[in-house]
């Protein structure tokens, strides 16, 4: 189980509501996929005519399923981005490159009770949570805020859900967040995933009520690992200029043109690839440089960090 990208094939697409598309993906070679945990996501490389998007989607398939990954994509209104591509262009038989699953929103295994609050499409990570808890027998409750017309949309994935409540924007049907948070026993972990306003409201209400921050979790979606805005790097010693694309790291770009760049961990921790910056402003994403070194702006870790300026000159 070693690798970083997956070749996937679209097995089925299915519109489960007017703006929600369910997509089923399998390994292009027909083999088993890496298993994934509740709350995991994959990053899909969506190759449009003019540009490429890298969007992260929560896996809604039951944790550990290796025959297929399932995602649900909401079409973002007025977007010409990845969600429009999935809704308009993607069809069965299409091939996609995806990252291996990663997880920034795993359930807390020490919890005595799992309290989930979902807003709209933010329900997707909880669909895999529910499957996990149903298998392990963990105590849980899911509170879903959605449109009244969508209260049944996710029912196929929620049949094993324990306590389940729906809320919508009408008198007598709104979620009273402070009341819900006030009556929870010690050992409860709270998870929220939804629009930023809901996330903020829940996190603030929990803090006001005295929940320890360690028991409050919010999905941070699609954290970029090494990609970002394109920029130019000039390698002063070798005299090579290289364009760093949006979906590659500076280190990958340097390697692509064949310049010698020592590296070890490729994750911003070991310090081996640290390089002198002669011109330009780095955007630091590593765990290695100290605050003073970051502010000094004279060093960069090309394996993860990028540029704020349009051009960097490196001592390489």
């Amino acid at each position: 189980m070693i690798g970083d990208t997956l070749e996937l094939i679209v097995v089925a697409v299915d519109d489960i509501a007017s703006s929600l598309r369910h997509v089923r993906l399998a390994a292009a070679d027909g083999g088993p996929l890496p298993p994934a945990a509740a709350g995991a996501n994959i990053q899909l490389r969506l190759q449009g005519a003019a540009r490429t998007w890298r969007n992260a989607y929560s896996l809604i398939s039951p944790p550990g399923r290796r025959d297929a990954y399932e995602i649900i994509v909401r079409r973002v209104p007025e977007s010409r981005g990845g969600s429009a591509f999935v809704h308009e262009v993607l069809k069965p038989g299409d091939r996609l490159v995806a990252s291996w699953p990663s997880n920034l929103f795993a359930p807390q295994r020490t919890a005595r009770h799992h309290l989930m609050i979902a807003g709209g499409i933010g329900i997707t990570p909880f669909l895999s949570y529910v499957a996990d808890f149903a298998h392990s027998g963990a105590s849980h409750a899911l509170h879903v805020c959605c449109r009244e017309s969508e209260t049944g949309t996710f029912a196929p994935w929620l049949q094993a859900c324990g306590e389940l409540h729906h809320y919508w924007d009408a008198d007598g049907h709104r979620l009273d967040i402070p009341a819900l948070l006030a009556r929870q026993p010690a050992g409860t972990h709270l998870y929220v995933c939804g629009p930023a306003a809901l996330n903020d409201e829940v996190i603030q209400a929990a803090a006001n009520a005295g929940w320890p921050a360690s028991h409050v979790h919010c999905e941070h979606f699609g954290a970029a690992l090494s990609g970002g805005t394109p920029f130019t790097a000039f390698l002063s010693r070798s005299g090579i200029e290289v364009e760093v694309g949006e979906s590659e790291s500076l280190l990958e770009a340097i390697e692509r043109v064949g310049a010698a760049a020592p590296c070890l961990c490729r994750g911003g921790a070991c310090g081996v690839c640290v390089t002198r910056v002669l011109e330009g402003e780095p955007e630091h994403r590593d765990h290695y440089l100290g605050a003073a070194e970051r502010e000094g702006g004279e060093l960069i870790m090309p394996c993860v960090s990028r540029a704020r300026s349009t051009r960097l000159v490196l001592d390489l």
Binding site: M1, I2, G3, D4, P34, A36, W100, P101, S102, N103, C265, G267, G268, A269, C270, H287
Partner: peptide
């Protein structure tokens, strides 16, 4: 910090 970001498959 590094290990917290350790990725599946790597």
């Amino acid at each position: 910090k590094y290990l917290l970001m350790l990725r599946l498959g790597q």
